[in-house]
């Protein structure tokens, strides 16, 4: 469990990192928190020739809210999101998802950008970003471009980032006043890889009806997915246990062949997706009600 040899470069800024990635081509990988990449290297499942370490690029670590947009720098540690009380309110679900990324030592090193760019189908932050309609900012030698979360995840550990692009930040529109969010996950153990997870954002109108709902799921396909059929079931309705149950059924039925592994079968994951959708919607709606 020792990696093959590689060359290491420390990038002091995002631009320097982009330059190094361009210079070293497809054999280069970005090292951020290293909580997934280094394990993969040690097991010799990946063997990058060059590591571009972005940890010295302090400009990439920030959490900002301005003009109705939340921006999180790619190098922000997961634990920072977990402990950021300014995110409470409509973004509680984001904090919940961050708080369940492994154990505290992992969260102190692991980064928001890394969690997204590694694109593990069972990772916590991708479904949250889908539910929050986030966009990812990618910097290449030609400058910045943004990619919607919906278009960012292409497959297990595959994203829309070009080889020489660096994920620099994630931006998301703050949910409307009166919205609530939640993230719920089931894992075999209290922490560790989830079998499946659900993120939900629910907005209520003045009459208490559901004006908007977005749901993201992890662990049930090659990428995190939106549960649109479940969203359609609930939008325009009033919150109720029956409604959540109907949404659960719609979400589970719409899944395309959830994966099987040593921990759970696809059949169980499909069932779980429904349970989690119902629970996440209930929790998000409950929070929304309490904010109204």
């Amino acid at each position: 469990m020792k990696p093959p040899s590689f060359r290491y470069f420390a990038a002091r800024s995002a631009d320097e990192a982009v330059g190094l990635l361009a210079e070293h081509g497809a054999g280069a990988r970005v090292l951020a928190g290293g909580q997934s990449l280094v394990q993969e290297m040690n097991a010799r499942r990946v063997a990058p020739e060059v590591l571009v370490d972005v940890n010295p690029a302090a400009e990439l670590a920030f959490v900002r809210q301005e003009n109705g947009t939340l921006s999180i720098g790619a190098l922000t540690r997961t634990s920072q999101v977990e402990s950021d009380a300014t995110l409470d309110g409509s973004l509680t679900g984001l904090r919940e998802a961050a708080a369940r990324v492994g154990h505290v030592a992992v969260r102190n090193r692991g980064t928001v950008g890394g969690n997204l760019a590694h694109a593990d189908p069972a990772a916590n932050l991708p479904p949250v970003m889908l539910a929050l309609d986030a966009e990812v900012v990618a910097r290449g030698s030609g400058g910045d471009r943004s990619i919607s979360a919906a278009n960012f995840f292409l497959g297990p550990h595959r994203t829309a980032l070009a080889p020489a692009e660096l994920l620099t930040e994630v931006r998301l529109p703050l949910p409307p006043e009166g919205a609530g969010s939640a993230f719920i996950e089931v894992s075999r153990r209290d922490r560790g890889w989830g079998i499946a997870g659900a993120a939900a954002v629910v907005a209520l109108d003045r009459e208490g009806g559901i004006s908007d709902a977005r749901i993201g799921l992890s662990g049930v396909g090659p990428t995190a997915v939106r549960a649109r059929p479940a969203e359609e079931v609930v939008i325009g309705e009033r919150p109720s246990a029956e409604l959540w149950k109907a949404a659960a059924g719609a979400a589970a039925a719409a899944l395309d062949a959830p994966p099987s592994d040593v921990h759970a079968s696809g059949r169980y994951r499909r069932h779980l997706a429904g349970v989690l959708v119902a629970r996440a919607l209930a929790a998000a709606a409950d929070r929304a009600e309490r904010r109204n």
Binding site: A43, R189, D190, R191, G192, W193, V262, H263
Partner: peptide
Amino acid sequence: NLSASLDEYLLPGAPD
């Protein structure tokens, strides 16, 4: 062998 790492061979952790 489907249990060759501690991601697959699950030992209970302190919170469990």
